[in-house]
Design a binder for these strands. Structure first.
Lengths: 120, 120
DNA sequence: CCTCCATATCGCTATATGGCAATATAACGC
DNA sequence: GCGTTATATTGCCATATAGCGATATGGAGG
């Protein structure tokens, strides 16, 4: 039951659902997700942790970068099932569509570090 | 997105998930669910409302009685999908099993009104 | 209408949750 | 080690949520 509730809670927040939808399109790092969602970096990190603990996403490190992607579903049958559905669910949601349209322009090389320093 | 979040939130509480599992076995009224869950009547009513608004359950009245059952899924594709899965999910959960074992002995004729008066 | 039974709603409390700013930690290059 | 970049964690605050008791509402029967 706990495992199931974890997945349900993880997907009870619109920002976290948006994260899952975006990671369904491409691997992203925290600052890319931060830029896409328009939330504080710490908030994004917190959301990612919740999704990870629910077995919905996983990460791998590449030097400085922590890359996040959808989990393969081997940790939780509930997560696997919901991820399967979410591949085609919410495709016509306006908020999700807006994010997806921006995805091609969100690149860490342009928005992290130097890029951000220039922006602020 | 709102519709999806409603279903996710509705299923984020163990008591509400237990309600769904029990209603998958038989139609029940508030006082039967109250007895099964061991919660206050007002709490059960509140939970039922959340489940109903998420499209997971529906009710029909029979005189004094308000009977609840699983929804047919026509209101929400998300609810329909989760209900389909929950038919076989959590079957081996200890808490759910304990509830299911008691279901045959939970009858409104024995526990509501006079029955409850005797119990208290 | 009154009484009784079943249930929905309201108000309160304790706890959980989402957001932010500040800070700690991890990793890299010099 | 130091400085920089990326990210995780902590603490605080406002809001949401689950539980309860009290009360309002719905329905039936006399």
């Amino acid at each position: 039951m706990k495992e199931f509730i974890k997945v349900m809670k993880a997907l009870s927040d619109p920002s976290r659902v948006s994260i899952v939808k975006m990671l369904g399109r491409k691997v992203m790092c925290v600052c890319e997700l931060q830029n896409a969602l328009g939330l504080a970096q710490s908030t994004v990190s917190k959301h990612l942790k919740i999704l990870e603990e629910a077995g919905l996403i996983e990460f791998y490190k590449e030097g400085l970068w922590v890359n996040y992607r959808l989990a393969d579903g081997s940790d939780s049958p509930y997560a696997a099932s919901l991820l399967g559905h979410l591949k085609h669910w919410l495709e016509d949601d306006a908020g999700v569509q807006g994010l997806m349209a921006r995805l091609p322009d969100i690149n860490r090389e342009e928005i992290c570090s130097k890029g951000r320093a220039l922006a602020s």
